[in-house]
Amino acid sequence: MTPDTAHILLAEDDPADVELALSAMQTLDPRRRIEVVHTGEDALDYLLRRRAWSSRGGSQPALVMLDLKMPGIGGIEVLRAIKSDARTQCIPVLVFTSSGERRDVSLCYENGANAYVVKPVDFSRFVETLQAIGHFWTGLNTPPARSLRGQR
C-alpha cells in the first residue's frame, strides 16, 4: 500500500471552516485530493475502513488534519486512537485548531501529534498557512511506505 502523496484527510466539523480550507487548498494544486469528514468517529472509520468507508480504496492519506473541538469523539481522542493503532500510527497527524494554548499544544504532542498549527483568523494568512501545509506534507515530506507493524 503506497500512500497517496496528494491525499489529505481533513477532520473538521465546522462547514464554514471546511469551505474556507477547501477554497484555500484547492486553488493551489487541482491534483491534490482532500477528503473531508465531519466527526471524530468518521475520521477513524475512514482510516480503518469501517462502515461507510469499508470499501474505500487502498491508500492512506499523506496527512490527517485534525480539528480539536469536534462533537462526539474530540480531536485528542481521535489522535490517541490513531497513534495507538498499529494500522494507523504511522500516518502523519497535523492538529489544526483555533487554540494556541500551551496546554493544548503540549497535550497534542504528548499524544503523538506530528505537527500543530493554529488556524489563522486572517484569511490571507489562512490561505498562506494551508498552502504551506499542503506544500510540505504532500510535496516535501516523505511518509513511510507502509506501517511495518501493521503489515505483520
Binding site: A16, D17, L20, S98, F123
Partner: peptide
C-alpha cells in the same frame, strides 16, 4: 475566533 475567520474569509472570497 471561528466566526471572525468565517467573516473575513468569505468577505475576501
Amino acid at each position: 475566533r471561528a466566526p471572525l475567520r468565517h467573516i473575513m474569509g468569505f468577505v475576501e472570497i
